[in-house]
């Protein structure tokens, strides 16, 4: 994936002062300026702090089990069931089958994060392709694609995901697919609106009248203009996708036990709510912390980059 080459939330209609300097600058100069803007934005505390939290969660989930040499999350010891946190050998206790809770939390996080990122990437790629295709081709193609988006949006998202997950069979890839489809119409409409905005800008018209092939115009002029906004939106979507994944798992149609995910851990813990509340609180807290950190990054980054302009 190419990194963004223009600030988030850039205006697409009309040429602001910032835009004018932008267009007149050299390519290299532009790249450097963009990178500086991004670095300043990312290093500001309101972005850097939640980003650090998110990265810590990611590293802990993916490298933690290896580094801490944790027991397997699914081979429990039935003599050690429902131990409270702080028990010897089980820092966060065990679940009803005697599985190590810390290990389950970290392994479960891997699934949540993979599904969150995977579903977003799927929606982003398919959605922006269709949206830009619609805006660039116009006419019948545009009508068909836009009505398709309407239909997808009218489809109650979770129910569509539930049907797909149930009928395709619940596993990680089908969960990603089921949630990703949910995002296609949203990304698609945004990509369409953004592309419409640049479709008649001078640099596109100039390139077209120079006889530049469509493919190059789309890749060279439209994608760089459309992508920043889409990537900004994608940041928000990762959290939403993780929420839906948790919901699917909670309803029993996501990734199945004994393989842990935060959602199915919470669902399983419901029965032991008064006996072992930590089984519910721990995965719920991890889920909320992760989604919150992502939302904070997205929100602060948007504000920062808006201010920069």
């Amino acid at each position: 994936m190419t990194t963004a080459t223009r600030p988030l939330g850039a205006s697409v209609t009309g040429l602001s002062d910032a835009d004018a300097t932008w267009v007149s600058g050299s390519t290299r100069g532009r790249m450097v300026a963009t990178l500086r803007t991004w670095r300043r934005a990312i290093l500001s505390p309101s972005v850097a702090f939640p980003l650090a939290v998110f990265l810590i969660v990611v590293i802990a989930c993916f490298a933690g089990p290896e580094i801490l040499n944790l027991p397997s999350p699914i081979v429990g010891n039935l003599n050690d069931t429902l131990l409270p946190p702080g028990s010897p050998g089980y820092p966060l206790g065990t679940n009803e089958l005697g599985n190590d809770e810390l290990s389950r939390l970290l392994w479960g996080g891997q699934i949540s994060i993979i599904v969150g990122l995977g579903a977003t990437a799927f929606g982003l790629i398919v959605g922006s392709f269709l949206g830009m295709l619609a805006a660039y081709s116009g006419r019948a193609v545009e009508v068909v694609i836009m009505r398709l988006f309407d239909a997808l949006l009218a489809f109650p998202g979770l129910i569509l995901a539930l049907i797909l997950a149930d009928f395709l069979g619940p596993n990680v890839w089908n969960t990603i697919l089921a949630i990703g489809i949910f995002g296609i119409a949203r990304f698609g409409r945004l990509a369409w609106a953004q592309t419409i905005g640049v479709r008649h800008r001078d640099f596109v018209v100039a390139a077209r009248s120079d006889g530049v092939p469509s493919g190059s115009i789309v890749l060279g002029h439209m994608v760089p203009n459309v992508m920043p906004t889409l990537l900004g939106f994608a940041l928000f979507t990762v959290g939403t996708a993780m929420t839906i994944e948790a919901g699917l798992s909670f309803l029993g149609l996501g990734v199945q036990q004994p393989q842990p995910t935060w959602g199915n851990m919470i669902a399983g813990a419901q029965q032991y709510m008064s006996l072992a509340p930590w089984l519910l609180i721990l995965p719920a807290a991890m889920l909320v912390i992760t989604i919150l950190s992502l939302n904070l990054v997205a929100d602060s980054l948007r504000i920062r980059l808006d201010e920069e302009r």
Partner: peptide, 9 residues
């Protein structure tokens, strides 16, 4: 950032 089912529980 809190999923609905977590709020409910």
């Amino acid at each position: 950032s809190i999923p609905t089912f977590v709020v409910a529980l």
